[in-house]
Deep mutational scan, measured.
Amino acid sequence: MEVRTIKVFTTVDNINLHTQVVDMSMTYGQQFGPTYLDGADVTKIKPHNSHEGKTFYVLPNDDTLRVEAFEYYHTTDPSFLGRYMSALNHTKKWKYPQVNGLTSIKWADNNCYLATALLTLQQIELKFNPPALQDAYYRARAGEAANFCALILAYCNKTVGELGDVRETMSYLFQHANLDSCKRVLNVVCKTCGQQQTTLKGVEAVMYMGTLSYEQFKKGVQIPCTCGKQATKYLVQQESPFVMMSAPPAQYELKHGTFTCASEYTGNYQCGHYKHITSKETLYCIDGALLTKSSEYKGPITDVFYKENSYTTTIK
């Protein structure tokens, strides 16, 4: 009895394709271990004539594949690729409408935090270190965002349907971005203890939790000093293409032309909904596939993004 075979390709990165001759009487799992086709788990399936010449994702289970996976995804987590594939199996079914010149995501599976993050990423200057993220990001900007969303979920250790947080998501993504040249110098002034300067680099240099107003941050924000008295913390120097200011959701007025974009969060910790506000020729609110415009805006804002380049204080 002759062994019926077909020729397929296996890959971990969709760049390096490895030619395989597979036995049609055995499952993919018996031949390769966990195997995925377009995100779908085909591990328990036997090869079919229609699979001839198709590319299958496999887990990096030998040295060659491990090197290829690390170079593309910059992670050695053995569960990463499987999590990416199972997320992709959902995100490829989502709709990605162009809204006001940006790629958004039609609401499904509690994905409003991903839509808000995706919209924000198209408006701030950011370059990702893992080629996987950078490639998928370019495709997302062009309207094909399924891979990018699935990668975000995998890097953030999230599953489809789980509630997510924009600030946490951005923080994970910033860790995989090139923020080497970003720098922030802060000064804390206390009447009792004097003053202390701190220099922050990388992710810490672009994120701040405690106030939404970048102007206020430049002037000074009140913080408790270690001595128990009130101290003032203010920005001395900022070198970065953008800054992200966050605070627990509270009524906040966004003035046209003073910011790049913002995240609105309605609801409580267990259950809520994100919308995205962007400042173009007027203010726009993007909620999944829905767009509304207004000249002014007041609502429960939790993150505001500002364009920056270089700032030095005039406070002496």
Rank of each mutant, 00 (worst) to 15 (best):
G29I: 02
S279M: 00
Y84R: 09
M244P: 02
L65F: 07
F9P: 01
L81R: 02
N157I: 01
N100M: 10
S25T: 15
L290Q: 13
P224D: 12
T35A: 15
K191S: 14
N100V: 07
F242R: 03
K229E: 15
N16Y: 06
Q20V: 10
S310Q: 14
F56V: 09
T211H: 09
T19H: 11
I223F: 11
G164C: 02
Q238G: 04
N16P: 03
G194I: 05
I124D: 00
K201L: 09
V12M: 06
Y284G: 08
K54C: 14
N100Q: 15
Q197A: 04
E52H: 12
F80A: 02
L235P: 02
D287I: 06
C193F: 03
A69V: 05
R141A: 09
T64R: 12
T192D: 15
D109K: 05
F148Q: 04
S104K: 05
H48I: 14
C190Y: 01
H256W: 14
S50P: 12
K44T: 12
Y274G: 05
H273D: 05
Q230L: 13
I286K: 00
K191M: 08
A40D: 15
H90N: 08
L283W: 01
G101C: 05
E68H: 07
T278G: 10
V221W: 05
G210W: 01
I105P: 04
Q98P: 08
L186R: 06
Y252E: 00
N187E: 09
T312M: 15
D180P: 02
L283Y: 04
T266G: 05
L59F: 10
D63R: 07
V8W: 01
T260G: 01
Y269L: 15
F80Q: 00
Q238Y: 06
N49K: 12
N147K: 14
Q98L: 13
A115Q: 12
T43A: 13
T64P: 09
E281N: 06
C182E: 02
L235D: 01
Y297G: 00
Q123M: 09
G228F: 01
A40R: 10
Y57I: 11
K106T: 12
V22P: 09
S263A: 12
G272H: 06
Y284M: 07
E71G: 06
T5R: 13
H51F: 04
M24Y: 07
K127F: 08
K233I: 15
Y311E: 15
C149D: 00
L179D: 02
Q98I: 14
Y311R: 08
N111I: 03
I301N: 01
R184G: 12
Y36D: 00
I105Q: 00
D77L: 06
E52F: 10
T169A: 07
M209C: 15
Y172E: 06
D135Q: 11
Y113V: 03
W94I: 05
T314K: 15
Y234C: 04
D109R: 04
N129Q: 13
T302S: 08
Y265R: 10
Y252H: 10
M26R: 13
R184P: 01
K219T: 12
R141K: 15
Y284F: 08
Q31C: 13
H48R: 12
F174N: 03
N129V: 07
Q230V: 13
D63S: 13
K93Y: 11
N157R: 10
I286P: 01
Y269T: 15
T278M: 12
C271I: 15
L186W: 10
Q122F: 03
Q175S: 09
N89G: 13
A150M: 00
E52Y: 12
F80R: 05
N89D: 12
V221H: 06
V3F: 13
C261H: 03
Q216Y: 07
N157A: 04
A117P: 07
C149W: 02
Q122K: 01
E308L: 10
N178Q: 11
L81I: 15
K316W: 15
G267Y: 15
V12L: 04
D77R: 03
Q122T: 03
Q122R: 04
S240V: 02
M26T: 15
E144C: 07
L173P: 02
Q134F: 03
S86P: 06
I277T: 00
T55H: 08
Q237C: 13
M207R: 07
A289K: 10
L81Y: 10
A145T: 02
V42E: 02
T199Q: 11
Y96E: 04
N110Y: 05
A117V: 13
G161L: 00
D13N: 15
P241D: 11
Q134H: 10
S294Q: 14
L88T: 07
V99K: 15
Q270I: 15
P224A: 12
A69C: 14
P78K: 13
V42C: 15
G299C: 06
A40V: 14
T302I: 00
Y72R: 09
Y284L: 14
E296D: 15
T76Y: 14
S171D: 07
K44R: 14
Q251R: 14
S213H: 01
G33K: 06
C149I: 09
Q98G: 06
H74N: 07
P300E: 15
L173G: 00
Y265T: 03
F259S: 05
I301C: 00
V8S: 05
Y234G: 04
Y311P: 13
Y73Q: 01
A177R: 04
L88N: 03
Q122C: 07
T64A: 11
Y113G: 03
T116G: 12
I315R: 15
S279N: 08
G33Y: 06
M24C: 14
C261W: 03
I15C: 10
C225M: 01
D109A: 04
P300W: 14
D77E: 15
A108R: 05
Q31G: 09
A247T: 08
M24S: 11
K95V: 14
E264V: 12
C149E: 06
E308A: 08
L173A: 04
K93G: 08
M170A: 03
K127E: 14
T169L: 08
G101Y: 05
T266M: 07
